[in-house]
Design a binder for these strands. Structure first.
Lengths: 187, 187
DNA sequence: GTCATTTTTTATCATTTGTAAAACGATTCC
DNA sequence: GGAATCGTTTTACAAATGATAAAAAATGAC
């Protein structure tokens, strides 16, 4: 996915505004297994995924819980760092070799105060992430484990193929054993 | 809570920008039990709560699920209507007689394109709601029912007092029977 | 290909949570 | 005051999920 596609998918910008945004974006690659963002740090960059798949997880008590997946076109961000300049709760791990677009939070913040189009682009970004998070919250609260898995399978079949099932089960809020049972039933 | 306090809590505006925002805000009151926003409609207003408490719920299958509470200083909004101009998933019911500040979405959208401060105010609003939703999502996924109740009791003791327990249990993602069991254990 | 390691599935039992119905308490209505 | 209604708790039982261990399958290194 090109950076122009990613930018315009969030909110179409004029050529001028898009260029001034792109001026601050660089391309980087990291190997599978790399930890892109760390829970214990206040992160200063956000990333857009050109190619690859990543997960966000927290270390709770003894076991880690995956609560988000990102793939091509998605934005990798520590919301806590970005919004409140506080340490986030998530580590971001690359589950494949990844090609990413990097943008410094500080540069973006500056643009928010200079360019009304980019300010509205930032608004739209937050709004869209909010909708996604809200939908997932409602799903987690309303549906049981089988329904959640069935829905994931329907809406993101590639995810289930590309990602280890232990991460999927964690994402669904159940144990790996439970997920296995559910998968066995469906067959 | 005054409207100036509510506006500035989200993101401090200059007097000029705040005034142009306030020009579009009116005060309304509705009685307990009133349905402020409807799931089946594309809503055209958002509200700020001056006084009172409200809940958002969805009718799923046969039983309704409460997934959000709002009180003094909170914003009542159908995110789907606001962001995507689509029908939301929630009804909003007033749990007490309420005093509200009303703002037409259309007026706000217009201001977003005219005033960079207000555009950034809208961005900050979405970002803050996003953080809240993300925290709740993580809580729902990471913590068990007792921990979630304990946390609610700690962080919003007034809520537990002001709201019926059947709504609280629904909000926690458990049955009323389970909540009763949890409450019995704590004593 | 073979071996070692990791991941997933299966089986068993314990625990948690849900369902349904009854009991209790508080409030409202006549 | 008494009957009816609503909200909450309790009880008994059923279903779902978790914990643990072990087997099977898949993956990766050499």
């Amino acid at each position: 996915m090109t950076i122009d596609q990613i930018i315009n998918k969030i909110y179409p910008l004029s050529e001028a505004s898009r260029e001034s945004l792109k001026k601050h974006i660089t391309e980087v690659t990291y190997p599978k297994g790399h930890i892109l963002l760390k829970a214990k740090k206040i992160e200063t960059s956000i990333y857009f995924i050109k190619k690859g798949i990543v997960r966000a997880f927290s270390n709770l008590a003894d076991n880690e819980v995956t609560f988000w997946f990102g793939k091509e076109g998605d934005t990798v961000i520590s919301m806590k760092s970005y919004v409140a300049r506080k340490k986030g709760y998530e580590d971001i791990e690359l589950l494949e070799n990844c090609e990413l677009y990097e943008l410094k939070t500080q540069d973006l913040q500056k643009l928010f105060n200079e360019d009304i189009q980019i300010a509205n682009w930032g608004r739209k970004f937050a709004e869209q992430e909010l909708i996604k998070t809200e939908e997932r919250l409602i799903f987690l609260q309303f549906k049981n484990a089988s329904e959640r898995y069935a829905s994931l399978l329907k809406n993101s079949p590639d995810l289930v193929k590309r990602v280890q099932l232990r991460h999927i089960s964690s994402y669904l809020g159940i144990t790996q054993v439970s997920l296995s049972r559910i998968r066995a039933e469906i067959k």
